[in-house]
Nucleic acid binder design. Structure first.
Lengths: 228, 228
DNA sequence: GTCTATAGTGGGATAGAC
DNA sequence: GTCTATCCCACTATAGAC
C-alpha cells in the first residue's frame, strides 16, 4: 500500500501535467489556430509525449473542453468585483456580458472551431448536454447572482427560471460574437448595449398583470424544452 | 479551340460525377454515420478515385454542402402542393415546418455533425455567411411565399423582413431538432405545434398601434445585425 | 493502480503525371 | 478531369516505469 502523501504528490503532478498541456494548447491555438496546431506540437510545448497528452485528453477536440472550463473560471473571477459593486439589474447584466467579451477576446480567432465542437449534441461539450461540464453550472450560477443581488423582484413564477433564461440570452450573444468580424468585435458590444435595456425592461414588467399569460406560456415552454 | 458541344458534354459529365459523389456520400453517411465513412469509401462507391473526389470537394466537410442543397430542394418540392392548398398563415407555416421535419428525418442521426459544420463562421456552409449557398435563398424564399400567399397583412415596416425572421425561427427549430433524442423527434413536432400559434398571433397583432414601438425596435435591431 | 513513452495504423488531403 | 502515389497527422496499442 502506498502512503497518502505519495498519492497526493502524484495527484498534484497529474494536475500540473494536465494544466501544462491545456496552457500549451491555448497558446498554440492562439498563435496558429486550431487546425494549424498538431498534437505533437502541443505535447512537445508542454514537455510531454504525444501518448501522454492522449492519456489526459482523449482527442484534440477534448482539449477545447480545457479552454471552456478555463474561460468560465476566468469569467467568474472577473465578474466578482463588478457584482459586489453594482445593484442595478441591467447594469449587472451588462457588466457580466462585457467581462465575458473582454476575457474571451484573445480566443476569438479560433472560437469558431470551439463553437462548432460545442454545437454537436453528442459531444459532452454541448451546452445543452444534461449534466454538462462545470462550465455551464458556473455560467448559470453567475446569472443567478446577477438576479439575486439586484434591485429587481420579477414575477415569482419567473424568478426560478430567470438565471437559465439569461444564460440562454448569453449563449445568443456568444453565437453572434462568434460570427462577428468587426474589429475588437465592436458589433457584439453594440448588440449587448442595445439588448440589455430590453431585457431589463421585460424583467421589470413581468409583474404586470397584462403580461401574466405571456410569462406563463413562456415558462411552460421552457419546462417542455428541458424535459427529456 | 474546342467546340461548344464538347464543352457542354464535359460540363454534363462533371455534373454527373459531382452528383454521383454526393449521392454515394449521403447513402454512406446514413448507413454508417459521418465519422464512420471514409473518403476512400465515398470515392469507391461513386466509382472515382479519392483524388478525383477531392477535385470536386475540397474537404470531407464540404461534402455536407451537397446534403444541405439536396435537402433544401427536396423541401421546396414537398412544400409546393401544401402552399397551393392552404391560405391560413399559421397553417401555412406549420405545413412548411412539418414538411421539413419529414424530409430531414432520415438524416437526423448525422445532423449533429452537419450542424457543427454549419455553425463555423468561416465555413461557406454557415447559414449566416453573406452570400451563402442557394440553400439559404431557397429557404427564405419559401417563407416569403408563406407570407405572400396567406391571409395576413402584417405591419408594413415588418412585411419586408418577415421572411427572414421566419427563416431565423425555422433555424431555431432546427437547432432544437438537432438536439432532440425523442423517438421520431416527437418533441420538436410538439415544439412546432406550440410555437406556430404564438408566431401567428404576433404577426397578426403587429398592426396594433401599441405594439408599434416594439416592432420598430425589433426591425431596427435586425438591420443592425445584418449590416457588416 | 497511476502515469509515461514508443512505435505503429488509418485516413484526410495533396502533387503531379496523363 | 481523372488518376496514382505519397505525405502528414490524429489517434491507438502496448510495454513498461513509478
Amino acid at each position: 500500500m502506498s502512503e497518502p502523501t505519495q498519492d497526493k504528490a502524484q495527484k498534484d503532478k497529474a494536475q500540473r501535467t494536465s494544466a501544462a498541456i491545456v496552457d500549451a494548447a491555448l497558446t498554440l491555438f492562439r498563435e496558429r489556430g486550431y487546425q494549424g496546431t498538431t498534437m505533437r506540437e502541443v505535447a512537445a510545448a508542454a514537455g510531454v509525449s504525444t501518448g501522454n497528452a492522449y492519456y489526459y485528453f482523449r482527442s484534440k477536440e477534448e482539449l477545447v473542453q480545457g479552454f471552456y472550463d478555463h474561460l468560465a473560471d476566468e469569467h467568474a473571477r472577473a465578474c466578482a468585483p463588478e457584482l459586489a459593486r453594482i445593484t442595478h439589474f441591467g447594469e449587472r447584466l451588462h457588466a457580466v456580458l462585457t467581462e465575458w467579451l473582454r476575457v474571451a477576446r484573445p480566443y476569438h480567432a479560433f472560437a469558431g472551431r470551439f463553437f462548432a465542437v460545442a454545437a454537436q449534441p453528442d459531444n459532452p461539450l454541448s451546452p445543452f448536454s444534461p449534466e454538462s461540464s462545470g462550465a455551464r453550472r458556473t455560467s448559470v450560477g453567475i446569472h443567478a447572482d446577477v438576479v439575486a443581488g439586484s434591485d429587481v423582484r420579477p414575477d415569482p413564477q419567473l424568478v426560478e427560471h430567470l438565471p437559465e433564461l439569461l444564460w440562454l440570452y448569453h449563449l445568443g450573444m456568444i453565437l453572434y460574437w462568434v460570427h462577428d468580424t468587426s474589429p475588437d468585435q465592436a458589433r457584439t458590444q453594440d448588440l449587448v448595449a442595445r439588448t440589455v435595456p430590453m431585457v431589463d425592461r421585460l424583467v421589470r414588467l413581468s409583474r404586470l398583470r397584462v403580461l401574466r399569460p405571456l410569462t406563463t406560456q413562456a415558462v411552460g415552454l421552457l419546462g417542455a424544452l428541458r424535459a427529456r
